[in-house]
């Protein structure tokens, strides 16, 4: 399913689901993210922490940066770490941007290891990525838009999970932004997935 040309987007969000074997301390996430700003623990021009714990299935707690946002995400009701690429940060090609977001999310998740329990035991689930294409100019919330995104992200699935192991499904209804789940037949280790995401991010950004 090769795409004909690069699909350039402004904003795209990728959520990496989290394993939380000891549960999660949502209130404690505010301190975690403030600590990340103090220590420069994750990439980006880190600006502030936004507290949306009161909102149903929302971004919960966000670490806002100039180039991207990190958020504890409950948008789908499942716990995850979402990274949103903003404006012109990183690669603009959709596939590369997805790789870029996934790589930032996976790196941020490794930073939880330095935190107190239970948040210190949070880890990445590598069987799925949820992609929201938040740029209706490039990918309108239509069947055609979803088809185009699926074609592109089908290749992302191959890049990220290996030629035989990735699949994509659209999980969306208009007028919501086109949302695609990239699933792995055989989950990789977080390290291997990070390497694949880095590769996907760099592979097209230099085109």
């Amino acid at each position: 399913m090769p795409a004909t040309e690069q699909l350039v987007v402004d904003r795209v969000a990728v959520t990496v689901p989290l394993n939380a074997p000891d549960g999660v301390d949502i209130d404690g996430m505010i301190g975690v993210f403030h600590g990340w700003i103090q220590r420069g623990a994750v990439p980006g021009t880190l600006i502030d922490v936004a507290d949306y714990r009161h909102v149903h299935h929302g971004p919960v707690v966000m670490l806002v940066a100039h180039e991207l946002d990190y958020a504890i995400d409950l948008a789908d009701g499942d716990l995850g770490l979402r990274v949103t690429r903003k404006r012109t940060a990183g690669p603009a090609d959709l596939r590369a941007a997805v790789g870029w977001c996934a790589a930032h999310a996976l790196r941020a998740i490794t930073a939880f290891a330095d935190e107190q329990p239970p948040n210190g035991s949070l880890s990445a689930r590598t069987d799925e990525l949820r992609v929201r294409v938040l740029d209706r100019r490039a990918v309108p919330s239509t069947a055609a838009g979803a088809e185009r995104a699926l074609a592109e992200l089908g290749e992302s699935a191959d890049e990220l999970f290996g030629a035989s192991g990735g699949s994509v499904t659209a999980d969306w209804a208009p007028p919501a932004p086109v949302t695609v789940r990239i699933r792995a037949e055989d989950p990789l280790s977080p390290g291997d997935l990070l390497a694949a995401a880095d590769s996907a991010s760099a592979g097209l950004s230099s085109d």
Partner: peptide, 29 residues
């Protein structure tokens, strides 16, 4: 809602004067 998720932080805020406010927006957007 589209503007909130594409330019802001996914949140629409209703003000005490019946406005809507979106935060964390870049001037060029």
């Amino acid at each position: 809602a589209e503007c909130a998720e594409e330019y802001s932080d996914d949140i629409l805020h209703i003000t005490t004067r019946q406005d809507v406010q979106l935060h964390f927006i870049h001037i060029e957007d």
